[in-house]
């Protein structure tokens, strides 16, 4: 075991750095510019039963130290992912990938999870019940303990691989929802997805994003994400994946002290396509600086 290695739901990772869903496609754009096997793993684009085009454009806006997106889960559908994306990925990525799953009803979550669970390349199922950009489903399932537990239970009953529930910060008590997921059988919790926000273009007086609202991410959400990790860590025993605003090796350590077993990096990949590679390269130096011998020794993570 290397000094950066960690374990996530029983599967070893060479390091805790995981590009977050929606910011890394199905890996291929990044495999063109660096060897993505340096990653712990990555979470692929939120995948649904049917292909989805997503929301009208503009889908992107900027804010101080961050961005908003209202992509609306554009993806080619689970069948295309299994027939085309995974075989293409296999040629360039030799680790288990995290499959990010979305749906607009519980049956769809189960359908997609069942199919991806059978794929050798898939290590974990990350169930997105927190997308703020789709009307039906998405965040709707992640904002009450009952519905979050219902999705967890249904998916868990259908699959063998570890199930990580990805939660929304747009709630009053994120720890309670995490606990409900744990009680329903979840193997891990990922926090956070994006925060609901908006921008207005002063030249037109109208919202920048066609969908009016979008999800805020990037360094501006880091303190919110860190707080969520800390609160969830205190409420559950299962591993927590920290996500939100991470853009440096120091941020990764902060997340781990707050209680994360592994750390996802989202928007940073978009502004610097080498972001995750650099973070991984920087980790040993930053660990040395703070006297950390092994990442798995950090107190916050269990």
């Amino acid at each position: 075991m290397g000094k950066m290695s960690v374990s996530l739901c029983g599967i070893g990772l060479d390091n805790p750095v995981i590009p977050a869903s929606g910011t890394f496609g199905y890996g291929l754009e990044f495999a063109e510019i660096y060897d993505i096997n340096v990653l712990g793993t990555f979470s692929f684009k939120g995948t649904t039963k049917e292909p989805r085009f997503g929301n009208p454009t503009p889908r992107i806006a900027e804010c101080a130290s961050g961005m908003l997106n209202a992509v609306g889960l554009q993806n080619p559908g689970v069948h295309h992912v299994i027939e085309r994306e995974l075989p293409a990925l296999k040629k360039v990525f030799h680790k288990k990938v995290m499959a990010n799953v979305s749906g607009s009803c519980i049956e769809d979550y189960v359908y997609v999870s069942e199919l991806l669970d059978r794929e050798d390349q898939v290590g974990w199922l990350e169930i997105n019940i927190s997308c703020p950009n789709v009307k039906a489903g998405g965040m709707g399932f992640g904002t009450s303990c009952e519905s979050a537990a219902a999705v967890t239970k249904a998916v868990k009953a259908a699959v063998k691989k570890p199930v990580i529930m990805k939660l929304s910060p747009n709630v009053t008590d994120i720890a309670a929802i995490a606990k409900a997921c744990e009680d329903a059988g979840a193997d891990g919790i990922c926090v956070i997805n994006t925060l609901l926000g908006m921008r207005i273009d002063l030249r037109t007086g109208r919202p920048v994003i066609a969908n009016v609202t979008g999800g805020v991410s990037g360094p501006c959400v880091f303190p919110v994400a860190l707080r969520a990790v800390y609160q969830v860590r205190a409420a559950v025993k299962i591993p927590v994946v920290g996500c939100g605003g991470v853009s440096s090796a120091a941020d990764v350590l902060e997340m781990m002290y707050a209680g994360a077993s592994a750390v996802e990096v989202g928007a940073a990949n978009l502004t610097d396509p080498y972001a995750c590679k650099k973070i991984i390269e920087d980790l040993p130096g930053v660990m040395y600086k703070y006297g950390i011998k092994n990442l798995s020794d950090i107190n916050g993570s269990k």
């Binding site: 754009e29 990044f30 889908r59 992107i60 502004t271 396509p273």
Partner: peptide, 15 residues
Amino acid sequence: ERMGCGFGACMGCSC
């Protein structure tokens, strides 16, 4: 189109 990444990763600019 408004872009998140400019290199095909985010689906921000689809048509």
